[in-house]
Amino acid sequence: MTIILQITTVVVISVATFMLTRSRGARHQAIRRVLLMMFVIAAASSVFVPEWWTKAANFVGVGRGTDLLLYLLVLVFLTYVATTYRRFRHIEEQNTELARGLALLQARQPRTPGPVAGDDHPTA
């Protein structure tokens, strides 16, 4: 593995981390979709014209096209994990606010405010 692939790896991991910490939005979603589309095309082409992959692999200093594909797959997967985690956290926050709002609306108050110690029978 040469310096080109190492740099690529660092860049992709940095972008994944960046997306983890930065605000989401339509632009990020568009970028993600473009990347995913590129990945799909690349994956399909690897079946039909594997020579391209071998050439590309040699260019960046990886032995075989399949190895390059594996490295890329790892990077894409990491990005996927990062963005999914972020989206999951966002949904969790929304869910919490909804549940909390509902809980506060349906709050129940004790029948006799104030202490009435000892008159409750434990429910069996």
Partner: peptide, 30 residues
């Protein structure tokens, strides 16, 4: 919840389990 209500507490019930951190914040809000 019913035990707590019978014991004299105000009761706020999360419709789903959210965790203790969420419970504290709901209590603060109440």
């Amino acid at each position: 919840a019913d035990v707590a209500l019978a014991a004299g507490a105000h009761v706020v019930t999360h419709p789903v389990n959210l965790g203790q951190g969420a419970s504290l914040q709901t209590g603060f809000d109440y």
